[in-house]
Design a protein around this nucleic acid. Sequence first.
DNA 1: TTCTCCGTAATCAAGTTTGACTAATGCCGG
DNA 2: CCGGCATTAGTCAAACTTGATTACGGAGAA
Lengths: 216, 216
Amino acid sequence: MSGPSAIRLLVLGAVRQHGRAHGYQVRNDLEFWGADDWSNAKPGSIYHALKQMAKQGLLLAHEIAPSTAGGPPRTEYEVTEKGTEEYFSLLKESLVAYDQKMDVLSSAIGFIVDLPREEAVTLLKKRVEGIEAWRAGVTEHYIPEDGPEQLGHIGEIMHLWVHSADAGAEWTRGLIERIEGGAYTFSGEGEPFVGVLAEGQENPYASGEVHPGDRE
Amino acid sequence: MSGPSAIRLLVLGAVRQHGRAHGYQVRNDLEFWGADDWSNAKPGSIYHALKQMAKQGLLLAHEIAPSTAGGPPRTEYEVTEKGTEEYFSLLKESLVAYDQKMDVLSSAIGFIVDLPREEAVTLLKKRVEGIEAWRAGVTEHYIPEDGPEQLGHIGEIMHLWVHSADAGAEWTRGLIERIEGGAYTFSGEGEPFVGVLAEGQENPYASGEVHPGDRE
DNA sequence: TTCTCCGTAATCAAGTTTGACTAATGCCGG
DNA sequence: CCGGCATTAGTCAAACTTGATTACGGAGAA
């Protein structure tokens, strides 16, 4: 398992949308997305990912003089060509991979409009097929042997996974429909939707206030 | 977020079912459950959890002479009283916590029969309530402001989460019904279902062969 | 002016996760 | 009897994650 990682995609995508961004900017964007809630987009992970990807040549680091607004000297990053390749590869993988890892899928949805509309649809259809194949495999693998119910309550675990796989497939089909129906603005279709905070814009979802129902 | 951890519950529960177990046994049980697929129950994590919990007094470690069947000297573990407390506390928390963390829930389902039937039902009902509260909070928090659709395709992420929360609630309701309908054997109801490998029994789901649909 | 608090930006140490690796023993064919 | 090879059991370094902490400058209070 352990397919593509959510932070890498998130960080790469956030930097890319800015053209050039420093860690704090990325951190703010991801908070704006709510990604600190539904993925491991915590400060440490973000800065780590930035450095790591810089070391791997996916990002180019520019050391910048102390910022105009206080704080330690900051580093700005830019996505390299290799980074762009990695970005699209991660994005496509994440859309197709059936991992039950919602953070990865969520991240990919956030960037899905970076693809051409038909490609997005194709990938999502592949995703549905993947889920169906997985479902067939699992039910066959875990049920028969000596007839069902040999598993006792353990079977409920499989039940849970299958149920939520079905829900995932259903949601995906809905999304495909909406996209085919013309929703949203995809790559090459004019003014893209920008999901990042403009310089100086306030973050309405800034941390501190916890959404109701969240546990600790 | 970051509620209860799946490995701790899994390891504690596995050791408890054996009465006394060494790491490899636990590792095999969890593989039998498929837990290495749907949770981070990899060897390193298991041995780490064992040592950690021994240090914390939840497990008692017995150093044993080299095993009868080859390999390095092994350590057997036993759950202490404090460990039992932790176990039930983790189990209950995991059943109720609405984290969208399926590994935690799956682990808890595996041990749910360690609770009395009515308590299991009560906890699951609390779980449903929790999901509903979360849902209400999220939809309210992320939708209005300046009317919906301000989010563009980003709204699809919330859509996804809500959709799968609904699926989770539905599954939980189904389970409650089955349990109330008399399914499975719970604590204090006679011969319990044993979900571990007997000494020397072969593991039909031993690793190597990947289930169809799994990615890498 | 000086002190303190706040927002910005990033680092750090402690803990966790990973999967490849080691090591010891028994089994089987030649 | 001896060399591989599978099995059993566990270790380890490298990578990742986390939350607390540091460091800096500016705004306002005293």
